Amino acid sequence: MPSETPQAEVGPTGCPHRSGPHSAKGSLEKGSPEDKEAKEPLWIRPDAPSRCTWQLGRPASESPHHHTAPAKSPKILPDILKKIGDTPMVRINKIGKKFGLKCELLAKCEFFNAGGSVKDRISLRMIEDAERDGTLKPGDTIIEPTSGNTGIGLALAAAVRGYRCIIVMPEKMSSEKVDVLRALGAEIVRTPTNARFDSPESHVGVAWRLKNEIPNSHILDQYRNASNPLAHYDTTADEILQQCDGKLDMLVASVGTGGTITGIARKLKEKCPGCRIIGVDPEGSILAEPEELNQTEQTTYEVEGIGYDFIPTVLDRTVVDKWFKSNDEEAFTFARMLIAQEGLLCGGSAGSTVAVAVKAAQELQEGQRCVVILPDSVRNYMTKFLSDRWMLQKGFLKEEDLTEKKPWWWHLRVQELGLSAPLTVLPTITCGHTIEILREKGFDQAPVVDEAGVILGMVTLGNMLSSLLAGKVQPSDQVGKVIYKQFKQIRLTDTLGRLSHILEMDHFALVV
């Protein structure tokens, strides 16, 4: 994948999101292997301009796509893939009243899908469409860049269908997702969380590099694949309309690839034109409109599966009536509230959605109805927002919020430890010299600072030695090549209790 991002070429006709291997024109390309080798690009942008032909009021008969309808489940399912879809609609009884809503608040519980998330729908649909058009064949390999849930859905379907599955996901995604993927037989590649989507090191860039190296491999490409919004247009939206008897006044959905909100909203605009569509985008993402909503100094966020630093091709923002931004604290607070007060075992993005819903639905009156999409299960986040310690460490809970008995030293300040200034190293000294210094002084790690004293990161003896043994660096290389740029900081005025929580999850903390 090139470091400079080429513009994806656009073909003359058809839909841009065809499933299957992508040609340089962004659509299915038939021909000899030699032709494909000559024409197939190194990668295709996940934010390529959409060429979708959908228009409100256009006859369904003019759609270029294969459409399906929700099917009634048999008493005995032939395999677990038949437990994807037909998820329950559940009334939220307490939270709406707590925040003064007059309307009825309903939750579409997508964590009841077989793999635990709304992404099971698009995973199965992308595979079925690729099999139907002859792209996927027995023994082929599926590769997908994902925040985890699409990966789980694909790995689940691949396990049943017999495909090899490789999932490329950023490091910030939970260990629970990784464990589930491994249990399903998927191979996992992790990428830096802070890598831009168009960087060769991003999950998108690495996935395309693997595709170019592995024979008979395919990126189904949830960011561009029409099967993504079509899955929701054909099934999720129809289920909502049936469950609500066609009567709903507002739908609120958090947005990642945009397939969920695009597919549902398009069908609702056709069948229930008075329904307002509300999009939820986390602070630090750029999906919301108008652009002024996205202006923030924050560039990272903890909530998973929603928000991006690019506009995915499948996201149709014209069908969203209003956007709201959400933050991590309210997302996790509301997710825990949904679990504790409503018994809905949902993930953090569901918290984002409901946090926005109780604001947006203030305009609705008694007798009206708001539906929220709860995308995934708490299963993926047992060591994250479900953990009091994690919430404390991230600053989303305060010590006084917890009532468990603490040891005698818990409320003492870090400054009472009488710490001395640490050994520091410059980023320009060599790895070999740094190892000598650390061994001589008896230290395992040291902060790396520039000549102005600005902290650049941390270097550890173990990481340097393993990097040297693996051949990633040489003793003569500058130590700046092996620094940890993500590390926890703590102030002298913070409590030892807070430091204790940090050290339970990290090997060190830097006192500043």
Score class of each variant (00 low, 15 high):
Ser3Pro: 09
Ser3Met: 09
Pro6Tyr: 15
Ala8Glu: 08
Val10Thr: 08
Val10Asp: 06
Thr13Leu: 07
Cys15Ala: 05
Pro16Phe: 01
His17Leu: 11
Arg18His: 12
Arg18Cys: 05
Arg18Thr: 15
Ser19Glu: 15
Gly20Val: 15
Gly20Glu: 13
Pro21Arg: 06
Ser23Ile: 14
Ala24Val: 13
Lys25Ser: 09
Gly26Gln: 05
Ser27Leu: 09
Gly31Ala: 09
Gly31Trp: 12
Ser32Met: 01
Ser32Ala: 14
Asp35Ser: 07
Asp35Gly: 11
Glu40Leu: 13
Glu40Val: 07
Trp43Lys: 01
Ile44Phe: 12
Pro46Asp: 01
Asp47Cys: 01
Ala48Glu: 01
Pro49Val: 10
Ser50Cys: 01
Trp54Gln: 11
Gln55Ser: 10
Leu56Cys: 15
Gly57Ser: 14
Gly57Glu: 13
Arg58Gly: 06
Pro59Ile: 14
Ala60Pro: 11
Ser61Tyr: 10
Glu62Thr: 01
Pro64Ile: 15
His66Ile: 15
Ala69Thr: 10
Ala69Leu: 01
Pro70Met: 15
Lys72Leu: 14
Ser73Glu: 01
Lys75Thr: 04
Leu77Gln: 15
Asp79Lys: 01
Ile80Leu: 10
Ile80His: 01
Leu81Ser: 12
Leu81Trp: 01
Thr87Gln: 05
Pro88Leu: 05
Val90Ile: 01
Arg91Val: 05
Asn93Arg: 04
Lys94Asp: 01
Lys94Gly: 11
Ile95His: 01
Ile95Lys: 01
Lys97Pro: 06
Lys98Arg: 04
Phe99Trp: 10
Gly100Arg: 05
Gly100Asp: 12
Lys102Cys: 07
Lys102Val: 01
Lys102Asn: 12
Leu105Met: 01
Lys108Cys: 01
Glu110Val: 03
Glu110Gly: 01
Asn113Trp: 06
Ser117Asn: 14
Lys119Phe: 03
Asp120Arg: 01
Asp120Ala: 13
Arg121Thr: 14
Ser123Gly: 05
Ser123Ala: 10
Leu124Pro: 15
Arg125Tyr: 15
Asp129Ala: 15
Glu131Tyr: 08
Arg132Asp: 15
Asp133Phe: 01
Asp133Cys: 05
Thr135Gly: 01
Thr135Leu: 15
Thr135Asp: 01
Leu136Trp: 06
Lys137Asn: 14
Pro138Arg: 12
Gly139Met: 06
Gly139Val: 01
Ile142Ala: 04
Ile142Pro: 05
Ile143Thr: 09
Asn149Gly: 01
Thr150Pro: 04
Gly151Arg: 01
Ile152Cys: 01
Ile152Thr: 11
Gly153Arg: 05
Leu154Glu: 04
Ala155Met: 09
Ala157Thr: 10
Ala158Met: 08
Ala158Ile: 05
Ala159Cys: 01
Ala159Ile: 01
Val160His: 01
Arg161Leu: 03
Gly162Trp: 01
Tyr163Leu: 04
Tyr163Ser: 01
Arg164Trp: 05
Cys165Tyr: 05
Ile166Thr: 15
Ile166Cys: 06
Met169Leu: 11
Glu171Met: 12
Glu171Phe: 01
Met173Asn: 01
Ser174Phe: 04
Ser174Cys: 04
Glu176Pro: 01
Val178Gly: 09
Ala183Trp: 01
Gly185Tyr: 01
Ala186Phe: 01
Val189Pro: 11
Val189Ala: 12
Thr191Phe: 05
Thr191Ala: 01
Pro192Cys: 08
Thr193Leu: 09
Ala195Ser: 01
Arg196His: 01
Pro200Trp: 10
Pro200Leu: 11
Pro200Glu: 06
Val204His: 08
Gly205Val: 05
Ala207Asn: 01
Trp208Val: 08
Leu210Asp: 01
His218Phe: 12
His218Glu: 03
Ile219Ser: 06
Leu220Arg: 04
Leu220Gln: 04
Asp221Gly: 07
Asp221Trp: 01
Asp221Leu: 06
Gln222Val: 05
Gln222Cys: 01
Tyr223Gln: 15
Asn225Cys: 01
Asn225Glu: 01
Asn225Met: 06
Ala226Thr: 09
Ala226Phe: 01
Asn228Pro: 01
Asn228Asp: 01
Leu230Gln: 09
Ala231His: 15
His232Lys: 10
Tyr233Ala: 01
Tyr233Leu: 04
Asp234Ala: 11
Thr235Glu: 15
Thr235Pro: 01
Thr236Cys: 05
Ala237Asn: 07
Asp238Arg: 15
Leu241Phe: 09
Gln242Met: 14
Asp245Thr: 06
Asp245Cys: 13
Gly246Val: 08
Lys247Gln: 13
Leu248Phe: 11
Leu248Ile: 11
Leu248Thr: 10
Leu248Glu: 01
Asp249Gln: 01
Met250Ile: 08
Leu251Lys: 01
Ser254Leu: 01
Gly256Leu: 05
Thr257Cys: 04
Gly258Asn: 04
Gly259Asp: 01
Gly259Cys: 01
Thr260Trp: 07
Thr260Gly: 07
Thr262Gly: 07
Gly263Trp: 04
Gly263Asp: 01
Ile264Ala: 04
Lys269Cys: 11
Lys269Asp: 01
Glu270Cys: 06
Gly274Arg: 11
Arg276Phe: 09
